[in-house]
């Protein structure tokens, strides 16, 4: 464990050095990242101003969409396709003989890219926040913000393990790109990245509130934007922790079975 952490630290440093060459690209990527939330924000504000009777107010909508870009970036994972390729092409073998966990390279890549993206994204979010400062919900206590970051971290772990799970199918299937694409499309709606889950129709409530994707993006943002009561917060946190543990265990079992089934190409 301790050695893994030390290796991880070194790999992150190396990745940061490598990726910072493309700093211009990160700025442009983050610009693209906040386009969609801003378009949605403007649309829903217009609807509200035009007399639409939404179950949430303008402050909720504004805070939600301003923070959304940050939450989707912080909890994103893009490794499923890459990991599946490594499995299919036998590149996994060179990782297996190293004295550290197989997946540590992917963890390092994930963390270092997010670290660099922060520098581009935070000023942009700050600017949008400033523009809409009059209708932002800012929780008084530091507690909500602390919870925001804790649940973001848990959400990031959840997304990452879902990705491991999907990539692990490559041990048995030739092409998982359709699975990856399905995950992205389903996730974008159910995680609240397209429309706030609070605006989903009443009949879908029970399902929407307890499906795992809510805990990848929407839940952390709801903590800041909304007025979740104390008990709702606790249940949410419990459900999120439950999903992290459950998906984590599942991913571990599937991954272990996959490694046993793995027959390195070219060996």
């Amino acid at each position: 464990m301790k050695r893994n952490l030390r290796v991880l630290q070194r790999m992150i440093a190396a990745e940061v050095a490598q990726q910072s060459i493309y700093r211009g690209a990160w700025v442009i990527f983050m610009l693209a990242n906040i386009c969609t939330p801003i378009i949605s924000l403007l649309i829903w504000r217009t609807a509200l101003a035009n007399g639409a009777r939404l179950p949430v107010d303008q402050r909720y909508i504004t805070t939600y969409f301003v923070l959304l870009g940050f939450a989707t970036m912080a909890t994103s994972s893009w490794m499923a396709g890459f990991l599946a390729n490594d499995i299919r092409l036998g590149k996994l073998s060179s990782w297996m003989i190293r004295p550290a966990s197989l997946l540590i390279g992917f963890v390092a890549n994930n963390l270092s890219e997010k670290f660099l993206k922060l520098f581009a994204l935070v000023p942009m979010i700050g600017l949008v926040w400033w523009i809409f400062r009059d209708s932002m919900n800012v929780p008084a206590g530091a507690g909500r913000w602390a919870l925001f970051f804790v649940t973001l971290a848990l959400g990031a772990i959840l997304v990452f393990t879902i990705d491991i799970l999907i990539a692990a199918f490559a041990f048995w299937m030739d092409d998982v790109s359709a699975l990856v694409q399905a995950r992205v499309i389903i996730g974008s709606v159910l995680s609240g990245s397209v429309v706030p889950l609070a605006l989903m129709p009443e009949w879908s409530r029970g399902f929407i509130d307890y499906q795992p994707y809510r805990y990848t993006v929407s839940f952390p943002v709801e903590i800041v934007a909304g007025n979740l009561s104390g008990s709702e917060l606790l249940t949410g946190l419990g459900v999120q922790l439950g999903y992290v543990v459950a998906v984590g265990l599942l991913a571990r079992v599937v991954w272990a079975a996959g490694i046993r089934a793995y027959s390195a190409v070219g060996a």
Partner: peptide, 11 residues
């Protein structure tokens, strides 16, 4: 089309 349909569910 989902956001559009949801939007016009409210107005």
């Amino acid at each position: 089309i989902v956001p559009t349909l949801l939007l016009f569910g409210f107005t």
